[in-house]
């Protein structure tokens, strides 16, 4: 039972940070289906940095994870500029742009990984092997009955993400920047008339979205996968978007949706182990989050309210 909570949380939190990334972009009026691509490219940069720097700071030193997280954020942010360029500057269809970026990211990271590996080790492998992050248990909280599992065997990045979520909520709902950002997604003309720069706010939102997704990606690489390889693209980005839709573009409910996904995934897997099914059957349980997403979408999609101006390029000359 504890294992369900432990694994569930470690899956839910990276998902959540990606969902909040998507949320920032969409709240500013830029539809963002590119999270999948952002997280992959971000994770690539993080994993590349880890591979390059690990020998310098000593193998097995856990500090490498923090370096990787910073690099993943930067990499995701850089890559998200393509989405910004297409959607904000070139006024391309934002759905197409998202799809284009996801396709490009798979190709780009596959090519760059083998090129980088060939240059570093001479072996053009398609993965960077990473250590799985070390874990810790919160002393008192983990003893709480039932939910103690949430505080057992935690990855350090879970704390970082939890803190980030609070900060991001505050930024979105209490500050001048957040207020303007939300206004941009509803009525960019109003923001422009109020003297704020819609283009700049949307750029910042997209870049934040890229950075957060990058962090989410590298956390998956360091926990669930233990490496960086094409298997980073498992549709987690789309799950994050689905969570954002259930959360009706609000951070609080989105958090609950991510937790539900995480628990469904870990619960399914533990069930499979408990039932002593052959390993083949794990495939059947791995598809649980996707089925759950579809089912939840059926119940929640009708009534949701995306930001009104999302998907529309901002054109100053239009009134």
């Amino acid at each position: 039972m504890n294992k369900v909570f432990t694994d569930g949380l470690s899956f839910a939190l990276p998902l959540l940070i990606m969902a909040i990334g998507a949320l920032y972009s969409e709240k500013s009026g830029v539809t963002n289906l590119a999270v999948e691509g952002f997280q992959g490219v971000g994770a690539f940069f993080g994993a590349l940095a880890a591979t390059l720097f690990a020998p310098l700071i000593g193998n097995g030193n856990q500090a490498i994870i923090y370096i990787a997280m910073v690099c993943a954020a930067i990499g995701g942010a850089l890559f998200s500029c393509i989405h910004g360029l297409l959607c904000i500057r070139f006024r391309a269809n934002q759905v197409i742009s998202g799809v284009v970026i996801n396709i490009l990211s798979v190709a780009l990271t596959a090519f760059c990984t083998s090129a980088a590996n060939a240059a570093i080790s001479g072996n053009a492998s398609n993965k960077f092997v990473l250590d799985v992050s070390s874990k810790f248990t919160v002393p008192l909280l983990s003893k709480i009955p039932w939910i103690g599992g949430l505080f057992t065997d935690m990855y350090p990045f879970e704390i970082i993400i939890a803190v980030l979520v609070v900060v991001l909520w505050y930024l979105m709902n209490r500050t001048r920047f957040g207020m303007r950002l939300r206004a941009c997604g509803e009525n960019p003309q109003a923001v422009d008339a109020a003297g704020a720069n819609v283009t700049r706010i949307r750029w910042m939102a997209v870049i934040i979205s890229g950075a957060l997704s990058g962090i989410g990606g590298i956390c998956f690489a360091y926990s669930l996968l233990g490496n960086f390889s094409p298997s980073i693209y498992q549709g987690f980005g789309y799950l994050a978007i689905a969570a954002m839709i259930f959360g009706n573009w609000n951070i609080g409910p989105t958090t609950l949706a991510c937790l539900a996904f995480g628990l469904a995934k870990s619960g399914g897997l533990q069930l499979c182990i408990a039932a002593k099914l052959p390993s083949n059957y794990t495939d059947l349980f791995l598809l649980l989050p996707y089925v759950l997403t579809l089912l939840l979408l059926i119940f929640f999609s009708r009534k949701n309210h995306p930001p009104k101006a999302a998907g529309e390029p901002w054109d100053k000359s239009k009134r």
């Binding site: 207020m179 303007r180 939300r182 206004a183 509803e186 009525n187 003309q189 109003a190 923001v191 422009d192 008339a193 109020a194 704020a196 009104k308």
Partner: peptide, 14 residues
């Protein structure tokens, strides 16, 4: 040029 989900005050200070 008003943001519908915002309050009147929020619109004025935007």
């Amino acid at each position: 040029k008003l943001v519908e989900p915002f309050t009147i005050a929020e619109n004025i200070v935007l």
